[in-house]
Design a protein around this nucleic acid. Structure first.
Lengths: 159, 159
DNA sequence: TTTCGTGCAAATATTTTGCAAAAAG
DNA sequence: CTTTTTGCAAAATATTTGCACGAAA
């Protein structure tokens, strides 16, 4: 892995930003705060972030939300997740040494997360063999959960 | 894994479609043909598919391309891939019993693929424990390749 | 012939960007 | 003061959809 810093507390944000020449703004603080308030394993899309901000009467423009999500992801503070959807999700990169993975129900969209040393070791040695420097590792298991068995005919077109 | 059929040849397409009440059209045949002509490990986005079709003087509308990609993916004939980009990629699901995985350079976008029994076994037992029925497994290793070392300061804003 | 698929253009959805004003350092 | 960041609205991208016509079974 690279030198991605593990943020122990929101207070480190200022330092991380300053190191790279970015400024600490109320918007950036607020957005990071929100991610800290989130239960572990939760992730937000840009729209969900906006909705949450509005609930707390924070008036941050959508453009700033997008810019902040990208910035924080590029700094390694947030992790960008791609499920089988049309938008990205973000979560705190709490512990970059052991990224976690997701099993996703293709029908209801439910996600469960898990960690795995097996996967990480595999990825590390693979990257080393090929001369890559790992930034993130994401295993995605697309599946149907108990509540949503595999459909067999076109009658079930939904989703 | 589910009963996703492994297509041995393009000729089976008709049967697979008919089974679910879909029709065999020249457009669907042509698009599947293209994927068969692709070297293993190659994948196409909707736009790339259009470009390739145009090169062969096939005049299939973009809407139909999108519809066909979605349809074939839902039938298990194609596999939908999400890299850290703003569009999806598709590839033939040649062997659904051992999906392959990708290591992606975040800077230049190069992808290399690999397979792994370790990953598949891990995924199978995980899914079983949680009562999920696996549809696909994708490990993505985001990294920087030899040619594109990790950037340290904001001076390198590109990309 | 009846139902499904296609092409077109318009509509959506998501994300990015130019620019002037406001804020950070 | 100087440079970055914000908010807004417009633009750019990616994908989906309504509808009338044409094609498959």
């Amino acid at each position: 892995m690279t030198d991605t810093p593990t943020i122990q507390s929101r207070a480190e944000l200022s330092e991380i930003l300053r190191q790279k020449g970015f400024r600490l703004t109320p918007q950036r603080e607020k957005i990071l705060d929100l991610f800290y308030e989130l239960p572990e394993g939760e992730h937000l899309s840009a729209e969900e972030l906006q909705k949450t901000l509005r609930l707390e009467n924070s008036d941050i423009s959508l453009a700033t939300s997008y810019r902040t999500l990208k910035l924080l992801a590029s700094l390694g503070v947030l992790r960008e997740l791609d499920f089988a959807e049309d938008h990205k999700h973000y979560e705190l990169a709490r512990n970059p040494k052991s990224p976690h993975h997701h099993i996703i129900c293709l029908d209801c969209g439910t996600t469960e997360e898990f960690e795995s040393d097996v996967i990480m070791q595999f990825a590390e040695s693979l990257a080393q063999n090929r001369g890559f420097d790992i930034v993130d590792v994401q295993l995605k298991v697309f599946a149907m959960c108990k509540q949503h068995p595999v459909e067999e005919t076109r009658s079930t077109k939904g989703h």
